[in-house]
């Protein structure tokens, strides 16, 4: 049994059922009379996904492999990287709305540098500035357009 496959199979099957019976009827109208239903393909795909997910869970439940020696899905370093990068993006998006797109871009670069372990102040200052100037030159001067 591969535990991750069993769990993902179950989660996908539940997601498929919720989509089939709640989301699709809620989000897609039946369509006008005389036309083929706009729900047809989404429903078919969800039926397929649900069926295959159940099969995935059952096949892995029935397999002989021992569940104990599986490596974790995400290592500690990977989880830390995800949290750090997600935080940097959250700050950058907030700055986009509250300050300006340029500050947001600078924060994205500087924040990721710090998050990834860069501690030299001149790199943390020079790299965002250099990249933003390069982007400005590329779009506004070389390509002759604006980022709006």
């Amino acid at each position: 049994m591969r535990r991750a496959d069993v769990i993902s199979g179950v989660i996908l099957a539940v997601f498929g059922l919720i989509t089939l019976f709640i989301i699709i009827p809620w989000q897609i109208e039946p369509g006008p009379a005389g036309y083929m239903s706009p729900r047809l393909v989404p429903v078919l795909m969800m039926v397929l996904i649900t069926g295959l997910s159940v099969l995935l869970a059952i096949r892995n439940l029935a397999s002989d492999a021992a569940p104990g020696d599986e490596p974790p899905l995400f290592t500690w370093a990977e989880m830390l990287a995800i949290v750090k990068i997600a935080t940097v993006f959250a700050v950058a998006i907030a700055l986009y709305f509250w300050v300006s797109p340029a500050v947001s871009g600078g924060a994205l670069v500087a924040g990721s540098l710090i998050a990834l372990g860069e501690r030299r102040p001149w790199v943390i200052v020079a790299m965002p500035a250099g990249l933003l100037i390069t982007v400005w030159l590329l779009f506004y001067k070389v390509l002759g357009t604006a980022i709006v």
């Binding site: 989301i23 699709i24 989000q27 897609i28 006008p32 706009p38 729900r39 393909v41 989404p42 795909m45």
Partner: peptide, 23 residues
């Protein structure tokens, strides 16, 4: 499953035949 999800996500938006918004 991945292929079916890909096709499913492609159905998001206005359906071109009936103009019904989907998902």
């Amino acid at each position: 499953i991945a292929a079916a999800f890909g096709v499913f996500f492609a159905t998001v938006g206005i359906e071109p035949e009936t103009f019904v918004p989907r998902l």
